[in-house]
Structure formats: C-alpha cells, structure tokens
Amino acid sequence: MYEFDANMDTNNTAKLEFAVQMTCDSCANAVKDVLHKEPGVQSVHIDLAKEEVLVETALTSLQVQSLIESTGRRAVLKGMGSSETDLGSAVAMLSGTGPVQGVVRFLQLSKDRCLIDGTIDGLTPGAHGFHVHELGDLTQDCTSCGDHFNPFAKQHGAPQDSERHLGDLGNITAGPDGRASFRFEDSQIKVWDVIGRSLVVDSGEDDLGRGSHPLSKITGNSGERLACGIIARSAGLFQNPKQICACDGVTLWEERDRPIAGKGRKVTDTPAAHL
C-alpha cells in the first residue's frame, strides 16, 4: 500500500442546494435542527414554500443528504456553488459493465481550487486509481476514453506533484461496504478544462508514479477501468428549477429510488396509449 496522501482534503465550505420534501413548519425545524447540530455545517437556510434547503458546509454532499434524510424527509441535491463568485460546476455519472456506479461533482471554488465531491458504490474495499481521461467517448465502454488528460505531456504522478498529468487525481478508498465517499480539492484541474472529457475509476491502487512497474510513470499501474462517465456541465445554485430529468424521464423524487447510473436508471416499460 502506498501511504502517500493522494488527495488534498479540504475544510473549505461550499453551498449545497437540496430539494427536500417538507410540508409544515415542524418538518423544516427538524431539518434545521439536525443540520445545526453538525460541526461541519456553517449555515442553513430553508424555504418551506419552495421545499428548498441551502447548506453552507465542509461536509460531503452525501453526508448532508444523509443528515436531512435522518429526519424522515427525502432529499435530492439540485445544485452546488461557492461562497465566492460562481466559476462553474460539472458532474459525471459513473457506470460500467459491472456493479460499480456513482456520481462525482466538480465545483470551481477559485481560479486555483477545484472541489471534487463524490460517492462511488460497488468497489472492492481499498484504494482505487481515479483519473480524468482525455476523451468523452463511451462507445466502447471505458476503453474508448483515451489516455489520462495530459495536455502538457508530463509523466504520471500524484495530485500534489508538479510533474503529473492534469487528470491525475490519485486514489479514492472504498470501505468494507464497497462505498467510497470523498471530498477533496485539486490545484490543477479546472472545471472548464474537463467538461466533455471522462472520469474513470480503476480496479487497483494508483502507485502515483512511485512504483517499479513499466506502467508506473504512465498510468500508475492501477489496473483495468471499472467504471466511467462523461463530465458534463451541471447546475449551480438556483439554476435547476426542473422537476424532471429531460435525458431519461426520471422525476426528481423517482430518482431517489433508482440507480444513480447504469442499468435500471431509465423507465423501460412503454406506457399505454390513451386514444
């Protein structure tokens, strides 16, 4: 196991906008109370009429969603933003031929800081290489995503190295349940540079260019590509008024009961015609 800290953890806050099923003041108060008790939450604003909750926090989006849903209300993340000027955000929905699937979000906090927040399920416990690849091409699953995003023709390295691919994001670590939930910053990735490219999680640990294998300086020798997704522009704060996903017909609340990506996401039954 390579003990190098591949990711730059962050205590910097971001603003998360959730749609939350609330019908009364007691619902709103329950949500506000559970969030205010959490040290990682800086502020909470609730609009009961719009069923919206805005949280400024250093927690992952999954942690905040879990706190809200611990009150018995369902929640869906609608947008992310910075406490500073909105510099852009993006999202990738990862899936593959196996059980691995997840959602990863990018938020440009400043010119030199990009926040990466995500949850990926179905992994084997342990470390997994995590990279932005140059192509947003999934025609042959993850094999057509191209190489690591590397516009300056550098050797593979760790996120904190000056000699690294721009797409080198180090490792994410899955727990015994196969889930990797993470939140970290990167100083080289820019949201506007990765939109349209792909994000890939690998089967093995990235050696960060420090190994003896011939692939160490090329890919980190992190194994096969397990799951991938195209990085697409996503909604910032208050930019997502829709209640239905136009790409797959899944409503805001239906998606809470469906896989976040891959098989089972879309409605496959043809509705009966009403003539």
Rank of each mutant, 00 (worst) to 15 (best):
Q108E: 08
Q108C: 00
L109C: 04
L109H: 06
S110A: 13
S110I: 14
K111I: 04
D112K: 11
R113S: 12
C114L: 13
C114H: 06
L115D: 05
L115W: 05
L115T: 02
I116S: 08
I116A: 07
D117C: 04
D117F: 02
D117V: 06
D117R: 01
T119F: 01
T119W: 00
D121H: 10
D121T: 12
G122I: 05
G122S: 14
G122E: 11
L123A: 08
L123E: 03
T124M: 13
T124W: 06
P125L: 00
P125N: 08
P125H: 08
G126E: 10
A127D: 08
A127E: 03
A127H: 04
H128L: 09
H128E: 01
G129I: 07
G129C: 06
G129V: 03
G129S: 04
F130K: 03
F130W: 11
F130P: 01
F130G: 06
F130A: 00
F130C: 12
H131D: 12
H131Y: 11
H131T: 10
H131L: 12
H131M: 10
V132A: 07
V132M: 05
V132F: 01
V132E: 08
H133D: 11
H133W: 02
E134V: 13
E134P: 02
E134R: 08
L135D: 12
L135Y: 05
L135T: 07
L135S: 10
L135E: 03
G136Y: 05
G136A: 11
G136E: 06
D137T: 09
D137V: 00
D137M: 11
L138M: 14
L138D: 03
L138R: 12
L138S: 09
L138F: 11
T139M: 14
T139Q: 15
Q140K: 14
Q140N: 15
Q140V: 13
D141K: 01
D141A: 11
D141L: 13
T143E: 15
T143D: 15
C145S: 09
C145H: 00
G146L: 05
G146E: 01
D147S: 14
D147P: 07
D147M: 12
D147V: 11
D147F: 09
H148R: 15
H148I: 13
H148K: 10
F149I: 09
F149L: 14
F149M: 05
F149D: 07
